[in-house]
Design a protein around this nucleic acid. Sequence first.
DNA 1: TACATTTGTAACCAAATTTGTTACTTACTC
DNA 2: GAGTAAGTAACAAATTTGGTTACAAATGTA
Lengths: 149, 149
Amino acid sequence: MNTRFAVATHILAYLAHAGSQPVSSEVLASSAGTHPVVVRRLVGTLREAGLVQSQRGAGGGTLLARPATDISLLDVFRAVQESEPDLFQVNSTNPSSHCDLGRVMQETLDGLFGPAIEAMRAALAAVSVAQVKEELGKHLPQGCPGASG
Amino acid sequence: MNTRFAVATHILAYLAHAGSQPVSSEVLASSAGTHPVVVRRLVGTLREAGLVQSQRGAGGGTLLARPATDISLLDVFRAVQESEPDLFQVNSTNPSSHCDLGRVMQETLDGLFGPAIEAMRAALAAVSVAQVKEELGKHLPQGCPGASG
DNA sequence: TACATTTGTAACCAAATTTGTTACTTACTC
DNA sequence: GAGTAAGTAACAAATTTGGTTACAAATGTA
């Protein structure tokens, strides 16, 4: 199973809530239910994508690189899912010897799956990390971090 | 990488082309560039989903269980992708101890990702195996199986 | 009946992926 | 200098995936 996308969204929603206050990998890991090193790895990916920035040393941590309203779930998806969804990939290492049917099939599938991928991307692009934070706030019971504000 | 969806579509397009003539797993495997047993495994899944039917013994093989125009890529996706896309799953085995944030996050993500999944499903539902076959025919160079008809 | 063919399926292996973990270096604050 | 926290390499365990062999069950044909 692949939890990186969900964990990344979790982290970004948390950072959105923390505002300009850097959050340590330890705190993020505790909240996301994983290991600090896993968080740092993931944060590294998000940093390369320009979504967050980090500060080393005492009092350091990670914070959003731009407003939460300017980060869409599509940005997160692109950053974390190294390639476009591999759901639609043929076995390119073993092309059919006959007429290179493998390549033709790939072309055909690309053309037919394109709209599906585009539709999903559009839907993801329509949701921002800020919205995720808002939704989280609504669902959180009172007395939890973020529930009040 | 997960090639089952593409290989399944490949197989179904081939069967659509073959019409009422059963096709052996050996032929399908050769065309899809994989192993006959892999094809039989996949065909087994498609059979459970009611998309194909098989005949054992000499002259046996697999054929479509209903017209290719009545099999959508969404049918294939559902049959082959055992669960809904796990792209959007949180690490449920390790929920955040504090306020069960993990569960709340899952609920929130489900609500926000829902439209993305629905959009992709709708796009997949709009394409039939018959259309895939047609597209393949267009792309195939002359002299290949299926290029003429 | 005997035989060839083909599916159904179990079992196993190798490769890749994912997550967790330890350990260590680098950088920054006090 | 001491303490804190990120960056990163390395490794292990679990899971997934695709390929392969082997064999039983079913089916058509001589």
